[in-house]
Amino acid sequence: MLLDLLVPARCLGCRDPGPVPFCPDCADELDPDGTVHPLGDGIATVGAFAYAHPLSTAIKATKSGGLRQAADALARLLVLPTAVPVTWVPAPRSRRRRRGVDLPERLAGPDGIRLLERVGRPVEQPDLDARQRLDAQDGTFRATRRLDGPIVLVDDVRATGATLLAAATTLRAAGASRVLGVTLAAAGGPPSAGRRPRRTGARRGPGSTAASAPTS
């Protein structure tokens, strides 16, 4: 209330005063995706939206600025299952400290369960091809407990799918029967590790133009 008067809310896309995460004009530009891509044995991934403006702009601003309220607003764009445990792809500790927010954790919502932890130092991926990214993720994650049944794994952006595949494979090795990787945004078409996609009629969050590719 008083803070809203002093610091008006701004759209995360165009930065004009307006609702968070998006003003009506930017919300109309969101590009729903919803294509399910197999990643491996018992592992698949689906992105809610294409990684494009204004969503790509919002994700970058939220992560670089450590905007927790913005992260929670973006989380409302995802409709996650309620009968299946939900976890997230944890960011490296150094990035969490630098950014002040772990966007995938916020996207997983208040009922998210920490089932993964990072092991070792993160590898910067922008100049790596799909195979090199996958190799760089080997041994990156460790499960926090033994698992049973299906798991929903949340991340902010999927590019090649290497990070999701490494995290999901760790969950499978810990006992998860199936893993569905749900990302807020998907970039660059099918993940490099994926096979032929299929469309799904699953619900998506409410309803993005080209943007630079992310590194996950």
Rank of each mutant, 00 (worst) to 15 (best):
G201C: 00
R158Q: 13
T45M: 10
E29L: 15
D31E: 14
L164H: 01
A187W: 15
P19E: 13
G42A: 04
P17W: 07
L134W: 02
A83G: 11
R121C: 01
L115M: 14
V46K: 04
G194N: 06
G13D: 02
V157A: 03
G18L: 05
L184I: 12
P81S: 09
K60Q: 13
H53Q: 12
C23T: 07
P126I: 11
P191T: 10
H37V: 12
T144D: 01
V101L: 03
P54G: 05
S64F: 12
G66E: 10
L107P: 03
G207I: 05
D33M: 01
I113P: 00
R121A: 15
R97M: 12
L78R: 04
R121T: 15
V101I: 14
L2R: 10
R99Y: 11
L164R: 02
R142F: 06
P81G: 09
P24A: 13
R142S: 14
K63M: 01
A173H: 13
A210H: 11
V20R: 14
R133N: 10
R204Y: 04
R95I: 07
I59M: 02
A185W: 09
E105G: 00
A193S: 14
Q132N: 06
A58D: 06
T87H: 05
L103T: 05
V7Y: 12
M1K: 08
L3I: 12
K60N: 02
A136L: 00
L107C: 12
A213Y: 09
D135C: 06
L67K: 11
P104I: 07
A83C: 04
A70Y: 02
V46N: 01
V79E: 13
L171K: 01
T35N: 05
A176P: 04
S192Y: 08
P126F: 08
A186S: 14
P21F: 06
A61Q: 11
D16W: 01
D138A: 15
P85D: 10
P21K: 04
A61C: 02
R98V: 01
L67T: 00
T140Y: 02
A143L: 11
Q125N: 08
T209L: 05
G189I: 08
R96G: 09
G188L: 01
S208D: 13
V84L: 08
Y51P: 00
G189A: 08
C11P: 06
T62I: 09
G109H: 02
P38L: 09
V20Q: 12
A130T: 07
V182Y: 01
D129S: 09
D127S: 14
L3T: 08
A48K: 00
R199F: 06
A9E: 12
D111M: 08
S64I: 07
C23P: 04
A50L: 10
P104H: 10
T87G: 05
D41S: 12
C14P: 07
D135H: 09
R204L: 15
V46A: 12
L128M: 12
G188D: 11
V46T: 13
S177D: 13
P190M: 08
V84N: 02
G112V: 07
A48L: 00
P214A: 11
R106M: 11
V152E: 13
D25P: 03
G100K: 09
A58P: 10
K60M: 03
G13Q: 00
